[in-house]
Each structure stands twice: as structure tokens, then as C-alpha cells.
Design a binder for these strands. Structure first.
Lengths: 355, 355
DNA sequence: TTGAAAGCGATACCAT
DNA sequence: ATGGTATCGCTTTCAA
């Protein structure tokens, strides 16, 4: 036996020694492993690591358990824990389909903070390419304690039922629409259009264009804005003209090119970005803003203040994340409570130079 | 007994009858319930609902099981399933701390699509207010098959070890830094500054300001840009001057106010938004762009093309989400594989009128 | 103060 | 073609 080489037959060049992989990909340590190493039972491990008050463990044991856990790199298994517990503190938020503005993502991040303070775990679930009830089922599989749906469109009353039957104590929508069975944190986007329309009327404008982005997925956001303008204008004899516009210079140039033919004296441009785009195109076409045509946007972007004339805008303000987190928490604690509807959005008009 | 009123003593006005709550908040149905209702065993339910090939179930039974599941509104319990299976297909992505631009969120959304096509479930985990290894432990509790970290800063080598020991088959960082033990999808942000610096030098500029946003959380993004400019300038005798700027008109006006004293003939302004802000302030101060001072940004925002002069910029291009998803998938399938580093970012210079 | 054991829900092996 | 059952990791009575 002495002459049998200890090394494998292949020359080492063929299988170069891998650099050491310190975290050996061995089996994942469980609380049983910790118990074994510490010389105690799994129950004790659980008591120590969860600081269970109802039971007294000697400091010596505590230390041994802690050290064993540390040494093994033990991390409890959330699925097992919540399976046993019968519930979790997960708030599920499907990731919005449409691209979100800075306002909204700021808001989301605030909300996450606030919910975390209330000891919830916020999880954004990527539901791209699922529709309606399929998505609801996928969310329900995770057994979240609450579901918060930003945006619009995907949830049906059936979906709400599925979620609630699967243990969700609260289902809330955050958007322009109300869904049967769910709490509604209502953003009445028509208000934005209404403010803009009213303002333009006050400025004496009578033939009002309304930009409708041609990008897909923005319809649920642009539709209500348009309706709002129509509401504001109703009965005044003024005219409202929807205008398709893609978020590209060429599209804006084309629209500006046929502008004089449209006979409009004002335009509400969906938001500040579209407004800036269109205003520039109009100016390049020799159309005076606000002389020939008044322009107004929405969102009160800082960048809108940089153009000349400075862009008038409808400023949006959302309920604070903290407030909203409280609403979620209340809905979770009292699932039987009335399905209150809250207005989450307030708007105000910032009149600058473009209108 | 006949005279004992059936109604509770309180007048009904005091506790008005609640509207019916259709989805009775009863216990959540399990596969055992389905089995009972269909008159089969839980095993059979599992076979039917998972379309298990290896076993033949009569069509009659299939239908009965399906109908029972439908009637009860049964949804499988993801935690139980993955506990049993010993693994999940979850890709965990901590939500980035710093506010993200449109470029990045577009990219994230693409990536989610692509990963879903590969049958992964993407989950963004809100880790606000956790630092370093605490966060890593929290992520590890979910036992994701892969962890993808956007941005910078939070992960340590210890964190990587924790994640891998807890069963993560791949840990990838997506940002300017490399972390020991993790795959690096490297965005060398210095390249952005380098391009800008080189361009300004070519234009004959020698005293270059570099805007550093004073907003917190942007340091890891702005630092490398500044370094890149310094690299480009090194040995040319040109000067580089960091300039703090907050994203507000007042801050920009203040900086513009002391501009002549700074003696600069060019400025790279972190990104297009800051560049637009500063350029406008300079112009308002009577400083000619690009005559007195050249201005360049980054990101190639559409809005940057609207100012006059049109804003020069460094365009960023990220690897496609599809490509990236493939990398994640490969890392998962071959966890032992070399820790490859990929360049995810490519940059190009778009010279317009402001430089 | 600690341990033994039941059970959360779903799956897959081994019988029938 | 189906059913019984052990098992995943953890918490929590109940006993000792």
C-alpha cells in the first residue's frame, strides 16, 4: 500500500487547486445543530435566542447557546417559524407595473420606514406578467398579513376574496380606483385635471388641450386627469381636446407642427416632464408661451422651474408614510372594521409664468 | 322561557347590524380540507394540483379535487412548501437606500421580467434602517436561492458568509464596489467622470469643477465620479475642484453667485438634473455657457435636451436585464464556479452645445 | 431550569 | 390508481 500515491492520478495542472471556499457549502445549520453543540435541547435554544421572558435560563447556558449559534453561523428559518406561528408580519406590496416618478418612490420608501417601525416586514413582490387573479393567488401563497396595492387595475373583487380567505387581515388599494372588499386609499387623480382646468379657465382660456401619453400603462393615470379637466370645463362652453404625445422630441415636434391648426389657447400636459417637452417644442415652432398658448403641468418638479417661462404646475401631496402605515396597522388589528376610504392625495395650484 | 326576548337587550341602534362579510374570516383552508371535501387523501390532492407526472390519477378524481380546491378557495402555503422542499426559487433584492433614477428603475423592472422568465420569484426586501450584518441575517432568514444587492455599502464579507451558509447559492453585488466572496457585477462609476473629464480637457478646459451632491446617501455614487475626473486630469496640469451642491434652486444660486471667484472654466455636474439646475443658475448670473464655463452632466435625460444650450452629457448604458438574469441563473446553477466579475456599465459621450 | 414531544402545511416515498 | 406516513425547522405546552 505504501506505493499508492496519496495524490489523485491527474497532474495538478489539469485540475488546478481551487482557492479555498471558506463558507463550506455544507448543510445549513438548524437549531438542532446549535442544541447539539451547546449540549442542550432545541427548546432551550429557542428560549435563549428569542429571549423568552416566561422562562428562566441560567446565564451559563445562555452563553453556551449564543456561542454555539455564533460559531455555526446559525440563522433561524423564517418559513419554519411562521409556519409554526400561523402568521407572519409581512406586508406584501406588488411592484408597480408602470414606471414610477420620484414623488411616488419617495413615498414608498417613507412608507417602508414607517411600517418597519411598527414591526412589519415590507416585501415588494415582482408580479410582472401576471394578470388579475393569478397574481392574487401568487401573493396569497406567501400568506402576508396585509397586501397593499399601488397603482391600478390588477385586482378584482375575486382577488380580494382569495387574499382574505388565505389569511390576509387587510387588503388595501392605493390608487384612483376602489375595489369591492378592499380598503381604499383613494387618490382621486381627477382632482389634478380639475385644478388645472379651473386655473386655465380663470386665465380666460377656452380651448384646452390635454396631453395623453401614448406610452402603455399610463392610461389609468392619464384617463382620470382628462376626466377632471372635462368636469372643470363642463357647462362653461369651453372645449377640451385630448392630444396623444409620446415622450420623445420627435413626437413633441410633430404635435407642435400642427399646433396652429388645432386652434388651442391652452394645454394641460399630464405632468411636468411632458409639459417641458411640449413647451420647448412649441417655442421652437415660434408659438409664444403663455401669449399664444398657456402651458401647465403637474408634480412640481424642480426642473420645471428652470425653463423660461417658468412652468406652472399642479403640486401633488400624498399623505405621509407614517399616516399611511398607521392605517395599514389599524386595518390589520381590526379586520372586521368598516372598509374606510381615505383621501390620500391633496393638490394645489402653483401658478408661475407659463399660464 | 317564552317571554325571554331573543334579541339582545341593547336597542339595535347602539350596535347597528354589520354589513355581511362574505369571505368569512374562518380558518384558512389547507390541502387536508380539500382532501376531505373531495373524499381523497392529501397525497392525491398534492399529485393533482401539482400535475405530478410520475403518478396516474383518474380523470374523475382529478375533477373532484380541482372542484373542491376551487370551492374552498384553496391556495397552497409557500412556506410549508419550501420548508418541505428544502429550497425556494426566491431571488432577494434589498430595496436600494438611495433614491433611484429612471434609468435604474427601468433596469430593475427589466431584470425582474427576465428572472421571472427563468422561473425565479423576485422579492424586494425593505431593509431600511438596518445596517450591515444585521441586514444580511434578516435576508438569510428568508432562505433565498440568490441575493442581488444593488447600490453600495451595506454588505461585508461576513455578511456574504452568513448568506452562503444559510443556503444562498449565489450572492451578487451590483455597484461600484467588490465584496469578498460575492460575484461582482461591477459598475465602475469612475468611468463616467473619466469620460467627462477627458472631454472637457479636449475642449481646452483646464480648471474643472465637479459637483458633489450634498444629499446624504449619494456619496458612494458621487465619489467615484470625482475620482474619475481626477484620473483623467492627472498629469495634464489641469485643476479639479469639488463643489458641494444641494438639489435646490437656492443652493445653485449661491454657488453661481461665487462662481467668478472660483475661476473655473468647466464643470461636470454629477448628473443631468444637477447640471440643469446649475446651468440655469449660472445663466441667471450672467455667465455664458459654454463661453465662460462649459457644463456637462450624465444620464442623457430627455429633459436635458430642452435647455438652451442643449446639455452635453455622459450616456450610461447598463447590461440588459436578460443578460444579467442569465448571470444570476448561472451563478445559482454552479455555485462553485469562479467568482467572475462583469462590467455592467458602458459609457459614451454625447457632446451637445453646453461644452 | 431543562427536556420530550406535538404540530404547523405540503410533499414524496413506499405500500397497497 | 390511491392512501399512509415520515419529514422539513421551529415554537410551545406539559412534565420532570
Amino acid at each position: 500500500m505504501a506505493h499508492i500515491p496519496k495524490q489523485p492520478p491527474q497532474p495538478s495542472a489539469q485540475r488546478p487547486p481551487r482557492p479555498p471556499r471558506p463558507p463550506a457549502p455544507g448543510p445549513v445549520p438548524t437549531s438542532a445543530d446549535v442544541a447539539r453543540l451547546a449540549g442542550v435541547s432545541r427548546a432551550t435554544v429557542s428560549y435563549v435566542l428569542n429571549n423568552t421572558e416566561a422562562v428562566r435560563i441560567s446565564d451559563a447556558t445562555r452563553r453556551r447557546v449564543r456561542e454555539a449559534a455564533e460559531e455555526l453561523g446559525y440563522v433561524p428559518h423564517a418559513a419554519a417559524r411562521s409556519l409554526r406561528a400561523g402568521h407572519s408580519r409581512m406586508v406584501l406590496m406588488p411592484t408597480p407595473q408602470a414606471p414610477v416618478g420620484p414623488l411616488y418612490s419617495q413615498f414608498i420608501s417613507e412608507l417602508q420606514w414607517a411600517l418597519r417601525r411598527l414591526d412589519y416586514t415590507v416585501v415588494q413582490y415582482g408580479s410582472v406578467g401576471m394578470r388579475g387573479d393569478d397574481a392574487a393567488r401568487a401573493w396569497a401563497e406567501l400568506r402576508p398579513v396585509a397586501v397593499l396595492l399601488p397603482g391600478a387595475g390588477t385586482l378584482t373583487p375575486r382577488g380580494v376574496t382569495v387574499l382574505k380567505r388565505s389569511g390576509a387581515r387587510a387588503v388595501l388599494t392605493l390608487g384612483p380606483e376602489r375595489v369591492e372588499g378592499a380598503h381604499a386609499l383613494l387618490m382621486d387623480l381627477r382632482e389634478i385635471g380639475h385644478r388645472a382646468g379651473t386655473h386655465l379657465l380663470e386665465r380666460g382660456r377656452r380651448r384646452i388641450g390635454v396631453v395623453v401619453p401614448s406610452e402603455p400603462g399610463l392610461d389609468t393615470l392619464s384617463g382620470p386627469r382628462l376626466d377632471g379637466v372635462r368636469q372643470a370645463v363642463a357647462g362653461t362652453g369651453a372645449r377640451v381636446e385630448p392630444l396623444r404625445l409620446a415622450y420623445e422630441e420627435e413626437s413633441a415636434a410633430a404635435l407642435a407642427g400642427r399646433w396652429r391648426g388645432l386652434g388651442l389657447d391652452a394645454v394641460f400636459a399630464y405632468n411636468d416632464a411632458y409639459a417641458m417637452l411640449l413647451m420647448r417644442a412649441l417655442q421652437d415652432e415660434g408659438i409664444d408661451v403663455p401669449g399664444d398658448t398657456a402651458v401647465i403641468g403637474a408634480d412640481d418638479l424642480l426642473l420645471g422651474r428652470l425653463l423660461r417661462p417658468r412652468l406652472s404646475t399642479v403640486r401633488l401631496e400624498l399623505l405621509s408614510g407614517e399616516r399611511l402605515a398607521e392605517l395599514v396597522d389599524r386595518a390589520v388589528r381590526d379586520p372586521g372594521g368598516a372598509l374606510e376610504t381615505h383621501d390620500v392625495l391633496t393638490t394645489s395650484l402653483i401658478a408661475r409664468q407659463s399660464s
